[in-house]
Computed example of a mutant assay.
Amino acid sequence: RRLLAQLTRFPPQRLAIACDPRRSPDRGTLALIGELSRCAASTRVWLMQAPAGQALDSQRLQDWHQALDGLGLDHASSAPLSWLENGHD
């Protein structure tokens, strides 16, 4: 709640949210991502890669894509570092 209050007072131009797609996109997580994204002018979600030796479940990854598309959020499997620094890819 303190983070949301801080972001509301001082909204960032760009916000990157990193998510581990090995976990399911549950309602609570999606609600938090939605709230965070409303605090920023522009938001991107980074669906992180699995650690070495592990694989992502394709169905769970598809669930993430559908959920984030439903929220209207851009998402990718690579870190949006250039976008964060410069505002473009």
Rank of each mutant, 00 (worst) to 15 (best):
Q66F: 12
D20P: 06
E85S: 07
R44Q: 10
C19V: 13
R2C: 06
R44A: 00
S37Y: 09
G87W: 00
P11K: 05
L81R: 14
P21Y: 03
R60N: 15
Q59L: 10
T29Y: 02
L56H: 07
L61K: 05
A16L: 00
L68N: 07
C19Y: 01
D20C: 01
A55T: 11
L84C: 12
M48F: 02
T8G: 01
E85T: 05
G70T: 11
P51N: 13
S77W: 12
L47K: 06
Q6T: 05
P11L: 08
T43V: 02
D89C: 10
L7Y: 06
H88P: 02
R9P: 00
C19A: 14
L84A: 13
S78Q: 10
L68C: 08
Q54D: 13
D63Y: 04
A16D: 01
S42I: 02
A76S: 15
S42M: 06
S82E: 13
Q62M: 11
D69N: 15
A40M: 09
L61W: 11
T29I: 04
E35N: 12
G53M: 11
R9V: 00
A52F: 07
S78C: 09
Q59W: 10
S77K: 10
R1H: 11
R9A: 06
G28P: 01
A67E: 15
F10E: 13
R38E: 06
G53R: 15
L73T: 07
R9Y: 01
R27F: 02
Q49V: 03
L68G: 07
A18Y: 02
R38Y: 04
L15S: 07
V45F: 05
R60M: 11
R44V: 01
A76M: 10
G70L: 13
A55M: 08
L36A: 06
L68R: 06
T43K: 09
Q6S: 05
G34Y: 05
R9D: 01
Q66R: 14
R2K: 05
